[in-house]
Structure formats: C-alpha cells, structure tokens
Design a protein around this nucleic acid. Structure first.
Lengths: 156, 156
DNA sequence: GTATCAAGTTAGCACCGTCTAACTTTTCAT
DNA sequence: ATGAAAAGTTAGACGGTGCTAACTTGATAC
C-alpha cells in the first residue's frame, strides 16, 4: 500500500500524524501526573480540615487500600512532593503545597464552570475530578470567564 | 486522634469519604478504558480515510513505538474490540465499531463545545483528547446544547 | 501496666503501558 | 526473481498502580 493514499472518504481531513501524536503525547503526560495531583490536593484538603493527613483517611477518600497509599506516598516523597516519617501523618513539601494550591484553584474553576453551565453540584464535583487534569491554560481561562460572568445559570 | 474531629477551618465542608471515594473510583475506571477508546477511535478514523488501519500508522499517530501498539492490539483483541491476523491490518469487531462511534460522537461534541466557548480549533482538538473520557452523560448533554445553540456561525 | 485494636508497614503478586534490541515477514523496485 | 527496505513480531526490561496476606507499631480502655 502507498504511504499516503488519497482519502476514500472526503468528508473531512485528518490531522497530520505529527499533530495528532503531539496531542496524544500531551494526554499521556497529563495522565502521568494525575495521580500525584490527586494525592497532594487531597492531602492539602485533609490538613486544612482535620489538621493532619493520615494514610488511612487518604485511602478511604481515594477508595483504595492502605498498601496502595503507602507505596504511592513513598513515590511522592521520592519525587519531593511530600514528607513522611514512619507511622506518622503525611505533610506536603513547599513544592507539594504549591502543586496542591494550583490544583485546588483549577478544580474550583472547573466545578464552578460546570455548575454555571447547568450541572448539579454533585455531578460537577465528580466530573471535575476527571476533567481538571486535562484542561489547558487557555481552556481554563475560558472556563473561569464563563463561570464568573454575570447572569443566571443556564438552566435550559 | 478522634475518628471525626471538628473541622479546624470552617470555610466549606468536605464531601463524605464515601462520596469522594466514589468519584475517584469513577475516574480510575475511566482511566482504564481511555486507552482502548483512543485506539478504537483512531482505528475507525484510519479505516474511514485510508481503507485500513495499519499498526505503523496507529503508532505514528499515537506517538508510540510499534511493539507498544502490537501489545495493546493483542489486549484489545483479547477484549473483543478488534480482530487481527499476523502481518495484516487491524479491523474492528462490532463491539469495537460501536465503541468507536460512541467516542467519535462524544469527541465531536466536546470539540464543538470548546470552539463555541471561544477556543481555537487546534487547542480544542488537543484538550478534547484528554477531556472526552471524563465527561458524564449529563455533562455531555449540556455541552451539546451549548455547542448547538444559535450564535455566530460554526466554522465547519 | 497490659491487652487489644486500629493504623501502618512489608512482601509478593498481577496487569498495564512503555521502551529497546533483535528477529521475521511482506512489499516493492529493479 | 531477487534483494533491500518497510512493516510486523517477539523477548525482555522497567516503572506505575492496584491487590491480599501477614506482620509491626502505636493508641486506648481497662
């Protein structure tokens, strides 16, 4: 078969292989940081509300088992996002705290955006959990503008 | 420490551990199907435009190596989404085709939504690649409504 | 003070998704 | 018809994310 044969269906063109590959690479990159972001964001929440972040609470709120949390926290510690001492709660490093704050802001924008769009708060929270990691800076800015704009929520 | 101490910061309450765990479990579930969806969607695109889906093209458009594609295709075949014969192109099963179509529709809605929101087409495509897997049915419906409502002409 | 129980840890397994290196098969130009 | 190039495959490595089972430590009730 020829390297680039003419399209059989001429409706719309495909993006170039390179462009498409770039998009997928960006997605894979985002996927790699997602878990770390979920952890630091949750840890910051727990510390803000309960004064400390215990592995057992992280586990129950993430819906995974304690050993999974332990292993992940070790990785986060290795990567400089958290500090931990054996049998103690977890704390964020400066880097971890910065990341958590960034995530919190982004998360809030996405949630408020979805609610403004007409979604119920519960589903907005759920969807935001997945969406937030894949929103570029430009899109986030548009979300923020839409969320903040004056007017009643779009209930149609 | 007490099991559920009073919040130290009273600004806003946390969701219950169960609710939050549910959201994270949903995200993990979505993450598990993401790659399969990317593959079948891409395979459908390639077949529609070039008449066949060759591993080498899948690899170049995904930005991964050929062995990675091979292994993933084996998994998709095991899961009943694609059919393959050695040294031949890949085809979708009925199930794979159905999934691909569902993804295509969802992808298009997300892209049109983002463009309508004011994003450039290129960034819209990129962000959609990541976002589409995490949009619930309700949110998708809102996206579709927003994208289709009258306003400035769609550039399609 | 000690026994108990919750929390935390360690070890080991499994699967996924990625890679490189080396090999085989197919395709195509001459 | 054949040989080189392209495509595909296999093997093996590695890190991530999850689990269960079994162990150790810490906190608490008495």
């Amino acid at each position: 078969m020829k390297p680039v044969p003419a399209p059989l269906s001429a409706e719309d063109d495909l993006r170039s292989a390179e462009t498409q590959a770039g998009a997928f690479q960006a997605v894979r990159e985002a996927r790699r940081s997602e878990l770390a972001e979920d952890y630091v964001e949750l840890i910051a929440e727990l510390i803000a509300h309960f004064g400390e972040a215990r592995p057992v609470d992280i586990a129950s709120r993430l819906g995974v088992t304690a050993p999974t949390v332990a292993k992940t926290l070790d990785r986060l510690a290795r990567d400089g996002l958290v500090m931990r001492a054996r049998y103690r709660s977890v704390f964020l490093t400066d880097q971890g705290r910065a990341l958590a704050e960034e995530c919190r802001v982004r998360h809030d924008i996405v949630v408020r955006f979805l609610i403004r769009l007409g979604l119920d708060a519960e589903t907005a929270e759920q969807d935001a959990e997945g969406i937030e990691h894949h929103v570029s800076a430009r899109t986030l800015a548009l979300f923020a503008a839409f969320a903040e704009r004056r007017g009643q929520p779009e209930t149609r």
